[in-house]
Design a protein around this nucleic acid. Structure first.
Length: 948
RNA sequence: GCGGAUAUGGCGUAAUUGGUAGCCGCGCUAGACUUAGGAUCUAGUGGCGAGAGCCGUGGGGGUUCGAGUCCCCCUAUCCGCACCA
């Protein structure tokens, strides 16, 4: 009988479904293992072959762990909220809930065909009220907590209030806590809540009608759709993720991720150590040089002079400061600008503020700025330095003000050159080598070298000078050692419809959260999804979107009286809200009392293996870690880090095919390698489904499109050879490979094996079906081998092959090296086939080894051997080294196909004699069934390699 | 500019982690079977050479008895961040 995958695969898929083979329990004596995939966003396009790559890898690992006796949690779900569904709704008028449902059904169908071992009873969808109830719940907790820097964890806001009431902390504002009104107190607390409402500059995308998080904007364009993004001041919800910046950096040391991904996160968080220093304004009436620092401090204490806080990573260069620069948004600009400069400064500031992000970024190299007319005082030298405004100083980083050291910062250098400001060298690689900065072509930015021209730190190494300067400014009370982060708070509002509603209503224009037991706050039905250009969200169209505080119900907007009935928040949460904690919900997905039970999280702890794309490095993977750490602080999550080991599957690119149409004749197509083809033709994308191994199926091509019906061809050796190129997988390039087509043609097992065979999981690679036949052939050989089985006990050569395979496959899986596993299986089956009929005993073990990779055929063979339980419940074969090596070995051996022995050799023996002695010994001791070793290599440190 | 990674036959890749480079597969060549083959099987396939042999892991140095693997310097490609003080 032929290998009929079309019959085998549905049969076992049904069997697994009916037997609940992949159902997994939270109560088990077995050790636990949690294997997670990044759940997909169910787009209208369906799955392409890139999606399952990671799923197949994780499925192999999950199945392997199960065969090794672990209780494995391997769930799947859908990240179902998001912009595309809503965009589609706007275009077609279809409700996103419906299109999402349709898309999910299609995804499920595609996933089922590939034979994954997901426990579908644990499926979650972020748009399901029973799921987003806990997203909303977490939001309320974030709102009701603040970050206590002393305890270094999130604490209830009530804890802060009681500290304020007892006067244990100072408000650092004009009014004390006791003197504040209720509104003032609420406004004050908003500065501490981990979810807070504030007027902040946001990435506003007019085209999408929403604000976007930093990771959703690239080069001033939205990631979704590529629309321009502007900076705009808006009242928005944000998450105070910056409070966790240090812990997010530290936690990276405790997880088993690739260095490159850790580095991406470290860069994104952007921790830098330095100092913050206060530079006072030189008052106009004392515009003479201030004689000395000591005197200046006295003045600062008695008579508060307006001053600027700056952040620098190079306090050692403070003696080289020759000007200051403020960002155009700096609040003190209008206050300090002199009347003469006023017009010019105002003009510059309004010009700078109205530029889009894209304009700013595209002109990074150009220098612009304006002098305010005001001067500040360098607190260490007493010198007066001019204060400038320039957009090269960013409002969002540090304090929005810098001390400029043109000699040792390339940006300051460019600015000084452009505006002819003085440049003073204060660092030199060699203290005796001081040159005139006027002759320089670039600044000396390196942190190595010695301080020069630098008062009391002159002659010190840069590092020592940094410490000395910081100590000095701390002593003077004008600054301190500071750590700054590039990471910014995550903007959490989206002016969209298809997302989680905020459990928030507004009383007296201030936000209040809904009671927890009123959750979920369900997304209302509306018919008009369009956002407005002014930023009014689609939920503004909802007619029943008000909160009655007394009845604790959502009621009609008409009832709003601002006494008992209040308006609800109109924004919705961003995409990352639902995906930030989904891995925890899988542990206990049907719990109606809690996010997940203590028992469940106590059992599963966290994700042992997470597989997904590195493109989430600065988005989901940061937000999730933050979310988890917050829940950890609440005592709900039990591990600081959510994802212990993380494997990034490489992106699968498309491999496009081209036909070459003659420039002079529109119906003539010339094969790729015909001389002169390049000059006389234009390449045209052709659907990869009508090309096989770069050979065009001419008939299918003629049928493909009406304009090719009359196509004529200039062939080479009777074939039309297409060109190819690696491009992004995209519909418009006709290079999208749908997994369903391959499953229909070769079966799921072949697809699974082939996706692994393509190369290392982590590596980016083009999709290319050229080798799939080889894998298919292998499965057919395996099928034939299974049919040829005998009940005779296994002989030694067969056992040897089997145990070599057990060893190799086990090692490969542990190393996540699945491409080599497939090769190993091929060798194994070839070798066994060469021996003739295969013993059932060997075949059974081989079926178990193959079960993680090709579960359908493995299940079929396993059952044919007389089992009536699933191969999933079998036990992983134990490697028996004694089958490979003779017992009579008298030397320590490590076996891997080659052997390495350590020998004590007598003095004076030559290499040749030693080798001959080992060979003779091998023969005498029958190490290798009486055969002489293939190769013996003598190495000076008494190690000998023996190759079988 | 900063950071990370990669580089091996015509192609995808492998190499027990310092031990005969090129396993396995694709493709290609020859042959067998076949009415036929997008089926199956056998043999061959890094380069040069008739041959023994010589040369070969992006380039150049180095360490070592021995280097694809370790160290230094280049080059190319990919990815992330980018006026982050």
């Amino acid at each position: 009988m032929d290998y009929n995958f079309n019959e085998i695969e549905p049969k076992w898929q049904n069997y697994w479904r009916e037997q609940h083979t992949y159902r997994c329990s939270n109560n088990s004596d077995k050790p636990h293992f949690y294997v997670l995939d990044m759940f997909p966003y169910p787009s209208g396009a369906g799955l392409h072959v890139g999606h399952p790559l990671g799923y197949i890898a994780s499925d192999i690992f999950a199945r392997y762990k199960r065969l090794r006796g672990f209780n494995v949690l391997h769930p799947m779900g859908y990240d179902a909220y998001g912009l595309p569904a809503e965009q589609y709704a706007i275009q077609t008028g279809q409700h996103p809930a419906i299109t999402t449902e349709v898309n999910i059904a299609r995804y499920r169908e595609q996933l089922d065909k590939i034979g994954f071992s997901f426990d579908w009873e644990r499926e979650v969808r972020t748009c399901d009220p029973e799921y987003y109830r806990w997203t909303q719940w977490t939001f309320i907790q974030l709102f009701n907590h603040y970050y206590d820097t002393d305890l270094d964890k999130a604490m209830p806001i009530s804890h802060l209030i009681s500290k304020l009431e007892k006067g244990e902390v100072d408000t650092n504002t004009e009014k004390s806590w006791a003197d504040m009104s209720e509104e003032e107190r609420q406004d004050y607390l908003m500065n501490f809540r981990l979810a807070y409402l504030a007027d902040i500059p946001v990435n506003w995308c007019p085209e999408l009608g929403t604000v976007l998080a930093n990771d959703e904007v690239v080069n001033g364009l939205s990631v979704r759709g590529g629309h321009p993004v502007e900076r705009k001041l808006m009242r928005q919800w944000s998450l105070r993720i910056t409070a966790y910046a240090q812990r997010l950096v530290d936690g990276l040391n405790d997880v088993d991720w690739t260095d490159s991904l850790k580095e991406i996160q470290r860069n994104w968080i952007g921790r830098s150590e330095g100092a913050s220093v206060w530079f006072p304004l030189a008052s106009n009436y004392k515009s003479h040089a201030i004689p000395g620092a000591a005197e200046y401090v006295g003045q600062l204490n008695s008579d508060p002079v307006p001053s600027f806080e700056i952040f620098t990573t190079r306090p050692d260069t403070i003696f080289g400061v020759t000007f200051m620069v403020l960002c155009p948004e700096h609040e003190m600009i209008s206050q300090i600008t002199t009347p003469e400069q006023k017009a010019e400064v105002e003009q510059y500031v309004s010009w700078a503020k109205n530029r889009s992000e894209r304009e700013r970024q595209s002109e990074v190299k150009s220098v612009s700025g304006v002098f305010t007319g005001a001067f500040a005082v360098n607190p260490l030298t007493g010198e007066q330095i001019p204060i400038w405004v320039s957009e090269y100083v960013l409002a969002g980083y540090g304090t929005g003000a810098i001390m400029a050291v043109p000699a040792h910062d390339s940006r300051d250098f460019a600015f000084a050159r452009h505006f002819n400001l003085p440049i003073r060298q204060v660092v030199a690689l060699d203290p005796n080598d001081i040159t005139d900065p006027a002759t320089w072509t670039e600044s000396i930015d390196a942190k190595t070298g010695f301080a020069v021209n630098s008062g009391f730190v002159t002659g010190m190494k840069c590092k020592d000078a940094m410490k000395a300067v910081i100590n000095k400014i701390e002593e003077m009370g004008i600054g301190s050692r500071t750590v700054n982060f590039r990471l910014r708070d995550a903007i959490f509002s989206r002016q969209r419809y298809w997302g989680e509603p905020f459990p928030v209503y507004y009383k007296n224009n201030r936000p209040y959260t809904l009671p927890e037991d009123c959750l979920p706050l369900q997304l209302p039905e509306i018919t008009d999804f369009k956002p407005t250009a002014t930023g009014e969200p689609p939920l503004g169209h909802a007619t029943c979107w008000a909160w009655n505080e007394q009845t604790r119900q959502v009621v009609d907007n008409a009832l709003i009286d601002n006494v008992h009935v209040f308006p609800l928040e109109l924004s919705t949460m961003p995409g990352f809200a639902g995906s930030s904690g989904y891995y925890l919900r899988y542990m206990d997905p049907r719990n109606n009392e809690a996010y997940f039970s203590k028992q469940a999280v106590g059992y599963w702890q966290n994700v042992d293996l997470y597989v997904g794309g590195a493109e989430h490095g600065t988005g989901h993977l940061i937000y999730s870690r933050f979310w988890n750490k917050f829940l950890f602080d609440l005592g709900i999550a039990v591990k600081q880090e959510p994802f212990q080991k993380l494997v990034n599957q490489g992106m699968i690119q498309g491999r496009s095919n081209f036909v070459y149409r003659s420039k002079s004749d529109n119906t003539l197509f010339i094969s790729k390698n015909i001389p002169g083809r390049a000059e006389n033709t234009v390449p045209i994308h052709v659907d990869i489904n009508i090309v096989n191994n770069d050979i065009l199926d001419i008939e299918k091509f003629r049928q493909w499109r009406p304009e090719f019906a009359e196509a004529r061809f200039e062939l080479e050796e009777g074939k039309y050879v297409c060109g190819w190129e690696i491009e992004k997988m995209s519909k418009s390039m006709f290079n999208v490979q749908n997994p369903d087509d391959l499953v229909a043609r070769y079966g799921a097992d072949t697809l699974r094996l082939y996706e692994m065979f393509l190369g290392p999981v982590e590596q980016a690679k083009p999709w290319d079906t050229n080798g799939i036949e080889g894998v298919f052939r292998f499965l057919k050989k395996f099928w034939k081998l299974a049919e040829s089985r005998t009940d005779a006990p296994a002989d030694k050569p067969a056992l040897k092959i089997l145990h070599q395979t057990i060893k190799k496959i086990t090692d490969d899986i542990e190393r996540f090296s699945f491409n080599t596993s497939v090769s190993t299986f091929m060798i194994c089956v070839n070798d066994l086939s060469a021996l003739g009929a295969c013993s059932s005993q060997v075949l059974e073990q081989l079926a178990i080894l193959m079960a993680p990779f090709a579960p359908h055929i493995a299940e079929e063979v396993y059952h044919q051997l007389g089992h009536d339980t699933s191969v999933c419940d079998a036990q992983w074969p134990e490697f028996d080294a004694s089958l490979l090596v003779q017992d009579s070995f008298k030397y320590p051996v490590s076996f891997n196909g080659k052997m390495r022995l350590t020998l004590e050799l007598p003095n004076g023996i030559s290499q040749e004699e030693a080798i001959a002695a080992v060979k003779a010994d091998a023969l005498a001791q029958k190490w290798l069934d009486g055969k002489e070793p293939k190769r013996v290599v003598f190495v000076p440190n008494k190690i000998i390699n023996i190759v079988l």
